[in-house]
Write a protein that binds this DNA or RNA. Structure first.
Lengths: 209, 209, 209, 209
DNA sequence: CATGAATGAGGTTTCATTCAT
DNA sequence: AATGAATGAAACCTCATTCAT
């Protein structure tokens, strides 16, 4: 009708800017890699001009860090807690946990995020460190806790929870990288949910007293 | 001591040159990443001048491919076959296989190679494809074969070998990336051999009829 | 003589930029040759930095092509048509045409442009082709037309217009290359206007019935 | 049928080496241009190794100069003199001269040599100067002499020999460049002998008293 | 004489970052 | 706040030239 209807860049809630930029950038970084993505590409994808990005992020690396920070926390399922709490047995908790990870692997940026962290952590150690602290540092203990609880309840035999946890999440890492790295170059798609369920079967039997 | 000890690089081309360059490059690519490594760095690390590299490799990408090719094949344990053949039971084969992978993860370039493949496969899809075909395409079938054999022998219950194989190798992938990605940024070192053994325990019990 | 007089190159992009670059480049390419001219030289001559050139031309070759395109068209005397139209006789048209070419040889970039085309057409065949199509492809037919008209009018005897045309323009080519190639290395300057007039005399007599 | 029969590089008359190199180089310089020709290409074309060239020529430019020197002199028809001497009239001399040039344009390296000189004379002024002195400096005076003689004999009207000479050779220059520059990029081939003859007709009529 | 492996200076091009508007 | 023209450092790669054999 009037100018009102024109989506004016200068009028859009500017508080949302950083988030818009981050989303645009993750898409590109994940698809093309950090180095191969130009700041110009990010700007265009965010509907802004190159210079504007620098009003919100001091440099390209800061943008990468912001992405990891935001997405790692987002994926860091606040849901996890709820879902686990609702499980009646440790075996059920394990199944639900693996199903949740599988869902994230199949439906979120998690695989690409992981790939990004792996690829860039040498050049930007803080990235690796941050992901280690926030994402992994939160996940592994939860699994270890499930195991320990299962042992305490007599559901599982006495094994080392730290090692078992890695036995449990390893195949999910496998699935994530398969999706992010190998499927794009022609590997047969993997059914992550099925793998998670099958893996849970083996593990739960393997942990039985 | 004397001039004798000075290695003259203008000596006649040793057949070993390409291999020397590859080794020097893998170290740098793994430590600093492909893009962040300058051809000059590679040259210096190999004790040569920049131009000399180009006598053996047409460009930087070719060097990367050569590394993957050589190292993937090297790590592609010709030993695997022998070792597996010597196993009396499928369970033993599984243990030996995991121990072998663990050994490679702890003592060879495998983790760095893997990280390199993951990091560069988007920019250079042939790299990912090649690794998929050569390394992974050889490993997974072997594990699947062990499982299938175990089922046939009545050692294992009837499960899907393809899925079980991923349950088995997943934690080794976890270990490799832990070493290559997270230990360098401060994560606690992982005892891969122990993890492998522990994982084998769980899996073998989990597969029991 | 204050800061006012300092031209700020960070000013908003003037539409004239490409033209400024082209002019600067032609001077250098003609003086030093295409290969021997560094993009840095062009940039400095245009009062810009190296990178800026690439905002307007994708690469060095594109710059060369743009020069040829612009200058060939510029020299492609739109005037030719007018001037020829005003001639009462074919002989007069011939004289005027030769005088016009002579003027261009003495007062425009034509000789240097020609030299550039000759020098670079092997490495960049499109350059040669383009010049052939645009410059030469327009000039020769005009001359042939004058001849044909002269024959039709009975001013000239019946000869092959295509061959006669080459007899007519040849010495102008000679003059252009003399100026561009040999005068710079010490040859005695040539009076092109005089040569044109003298040549017209010979030709017109030579074509008389 | 002993080693004798084996063409041994090290045994071939080494006095001929420079000449062999020059011939190989001219072919390449003419076909690909001076800058685009690698010393390696020259070496291979001459059946030698790169280093060997440097035993005969101090650098690439020296090789270019040697080519111009040798070929300019070769084309500098010692024959010209004889042929001209045999002419009964100045008109006949003119015809013979033009026919000779046409022959050279069609059957020798002359066009490519000319193109080479034009292309390289700015970067290597001695080249241009040398060609000016030797080739052109010998040719033009001969033509001027024919004209002067014709005037003296009453065959031609009184015109300026220097200017007339340029009217005469111009179209041959045109033909040479047409062959070397424009035919390779798709121009219709020119019949040089025919042009020479036709041109001679026009000129001789044009010079008639 | 001849070789060819080795060198390293030098040029084009890219792109993160700056800054006048 | 936003723009986008301008910058210039940095990196790949080429190839004339050298020199140990």
């Amino acid at each position: 009708m009037t100018d009102q209807s024109v989506i004016n860049t200068r009028r859009r809630r500017p508080e949302a800017r950083p988030s818009e930029i981050i989303d645009a950038a993750l898409g590109l970084f994940a698809r093309k890699g950090f180095d191969a993505t130009r700041m110009d590409d990010v700007a265009r994808a965010a509907g802004l001009s190159k210079g504007t990005i620098y009003l919100y992020f001091p440099d390209k690396t800061a943008l990468l860090k912001a992405i990891i920070t935001k997405k790692a926390v987002e994926n860091l399922s606040s849901k996890t807690a709820d879902i686990l709490a609702s499980a009646q047995t440790s075996a059920e908790a394990l199944r639900k946990f693996l199903a949740l990870i599988a869902f994230n692997v199949e439906n979120t940026d998690l695989p690409n995020l992981l790939k990004l962290v792996i690829a860039e952590s040498r050049a930007h150690p803080e990235i690796g460190r941050f992901y280690l602290d926030s994402a992994i540092g939160h996940m592994l203990p939860k699994v270890e806790h499930i195991i320990a609880q299962g042992i305490a309840r007599g559901e599982f035999r006495a094994i080392a929870p730290a090692l078992a946890a890695r036995s449990i999440v390893g195949p999910m890492l496998f699935a994530a990288l398969w999706k992010a790295v190998f499927e794009p170059v022609g590997a047969a798609p993997i059914n992550v949910a099925e793998l998670a369920q099958h893996h849970a079967d083996i593990i739960i039997r393997g942990l039985a007293p």
